[in-house]
């Protein structure tokens, strides 16, 4: 990483530009970025892409619910047992995936970066407290914690995002911390200290920019985890019932015996969408890791 001199933040924005340019060089990162782009586009234009209202119960005739219809031009992926259009549900499910993925990733990266920065920079008791806290969090079983929290407060997206953020920050914080420990010894931090910069100024102007790419990397991994967690929680019935999500669709399919009827058109597509989006997160982090931090691999 380039040593940050007068305008460290400009260097940082340059690094983010580099991060984006990497996508064009690494096949994995490119595929991942394209999937993310497609997901965001579908989420934005969901109302145009969807062929039906996803929560509307459809009828084939008077009082006859359009249950379990096979795939057709009218219903691209058929209908659910409750008579709803599967394709449209799939399209709208992308919105919840985007919301959960991005907010959780942002929270994880923000908490992890902040705590990692503080503990690596100030060391001493701050470091001890943060690292012991990380130990405790790693001692909390992930999904059970989400379930219990969802049950005791109220089931819904916010609870899931909150628990993902609370449980996933330690990995980010640990990596950021060790990076800060090396950065703070570098000459430019020393120079800043000698010239009388305040501690906070050194921390946020001189140290923080050089660890931003790492936050970005761990944020992109968190996107996948958040979506998987949301899916699992929804599947177990702890999601927000008013929001259409892929996990919720799978729960609906499971509860309505879709497997027994061999309704692959119902339970395969939502799972595939989850795989694709989570995979995109893996691909991106993998590609960036390889280029930004070659010493971590190779």
């Amino acid at each position: 990483m380039a040593p940050a001199r007068p305008s460290a933040w400009r260097t940082a924005s340059g690094q983010i530009g580099r991060v984006l340019r990497i996508a064009s060089r690494d096949w994995f990162a490119l595929a991942g970025t394209l999937i993310y782009l497609a997901l965001i586009l579908v989420a934005i234009f969901a109302d145009r892409i969807a062929t039906h209202d996803p929560s509307e119960i459809l009828y084939t005739g008077r009082y006859r619910i359009a249950r379990n219809l096979p795939m057709s031009w009218d219903h691209l992926l058929g209908t659910t047992h409750g008579g709803r259009d599967i394709f449209s549900q799939l399209v709208y499910g992308s919105r919840s995936a985007v919301v959960v993925g991005l907010t959780a990733a942002f929270c994880v990266a923000a908490i992890g970066t902040l705590l990692g920065l503080l503990s690596g920079f100030f060391r001493g008791w701050v470091d001890t407290v943060v690292m012991r806290l990380a130990d405790v969090v790693l001692g909390l079983p992930f999904l059970p914690f989400v379930i219990v929290l969802a049950a005791l407060t109220r089931p819904g997206t916010a609870t899931i995002v909150f628990s993902v953020a609370v449980l996933l920050w330690p990995n980010t914080a640990r990596v950021i911390r060790s990076q800060v420990l090396t950065v703070r010894e570098r000459a430019f931090v020393e120079a800043a200290r000698v010239t009388g910069c305040s501690t906070w100024r050194i921390l946020f102007v001189h140290v923080a920019p050089s660890i931003l790419p790492l936050s970005f990397l761990y944020g992109s991994i968190a996107v996948g985890w958040a979506i998987l967690t949301e899916a699992s929680a929804s599947f177990l019935g702890f999601g927000d019932p008013s929001v259409i999500s892929w996990g919720g669709m799978l729960q609906d399919a499971y509860a309505s015996q879709a497997m027994g009827r061999g309704a692959y058109n119902w339970f395969i597509p939502p799972g595939l969408c989850i795989v694709l989006v989570v995979l995109a997160g893996f691909f991106i982090s993998r590609g960036y890791e390889e280029i930004l931090f070659p010493k971590l691999r190779s």
């Binding site: 996948g224 998987l228 899916a231 699992s232 599947f235 996990g247 799978l250 399919a253 499971y254 879709a258 497997m259 027994g260 061999g262 692959y264 339970f267 395969i268 939502p270 799972g271 989850i274 795989v275 694709l276 989570v278 995979l279 997160g281 893996f282």
Partner: peptide
């Protein structure tokens, strides 16, 4: 690794 475990289970069941 990206597939939800319960979804893999559902496929196996089906």
């Amino acid at each position: 690794r990206a597939a939800p475990e319960f979804w893999l289970g559902m496929i196996l069941l089906a």
